[in-house]
Amino acid sequence: MSRAFVSVRDLRVSFGRGARLIHAVDGVSFDVAEGEVFGLVGESGCGKSTILRALSGLNPDWSGEATIAGRPVARTRDPAMARTVQMVFQDPYGSLHPKHTVETALMEPVRIHGLGDGPRRIERVLTEVGLSPAFRYRYPHQLSGGQRQRVAIARALILEPRVLLLDEPTSALDVSVQAEILNLLSDIRRTENLTYILVSHDFGVIAHMCDRVAVMNHGVILEELTVEALMQGRMRHAYTRELYEASAGYTRRLERSGEEADVAA
């Protein structure tokens, strides 16, 4: 890990004060190489999204050290960092401004950074996420969930970042659309040589996308393992096994009910 592209050391985030102090993230360290997809998995409330919010600069109250692309992550928002790290949010229904057209939403980062050539950039990212230019003047309420998430990805890409933070990018979408978005994200990563940090509670998504995965519980990383090790069941921690089997069991049950439906049909 000498050429870590993203490096996090002893990251701590806490909320509240006094007796109600909660350590949401309690000393987390990990490294991500350039071009790698690193997964953070765990149940709700284990602190995985909080890590992303700290790394992105949305939550300034954290301690520890983090560097991305060789630059320390500042506590305050930093315009240069905006062009290195971008984020895709969980809920595409809440991440697009309801009063802004796709064009306005995509133009905003270009304007903020005073970059020229807005229309060409918009056309490029729209093509990249597989939306036709006809979507440019639509409002979010005229788009489906999958289309909205594509716009959100396009917005994250328009500043040409090196790292994308993905906060459960498919969990709010229909099952039929989830695979489309995941494949899109994989394709984009390959063509743009991006580094992803993907947060999910779904082992299916993790297995599909990631190279390595860290399993979190109560604000700490229990273990870090490769996806191969995960698939072969070579986890060291009982909690990981439990979580993995719960998720796999759920998938199997889904498959079985699908087969039954086929038989019935």
Binding site: S56, G57, L58, R77, D78, P79, M81, A82, R83, V85, Q86, M87, F89, Q90, D91, G94, S95, L96, H97, P98, E108, P109, I112, H113, A152, R155, L159
Partner: peptide
């Protein structure tokens, strides 16, 4: 809201 977080991430000033 996430859309405000998104534009903060894009580097927008508070006034903007």
């Amino acid at each position: 809201a996430d859309y405000i977080a998104a534009v903060r991430l894009a580097g927008a000033s508070d006034l903007r």
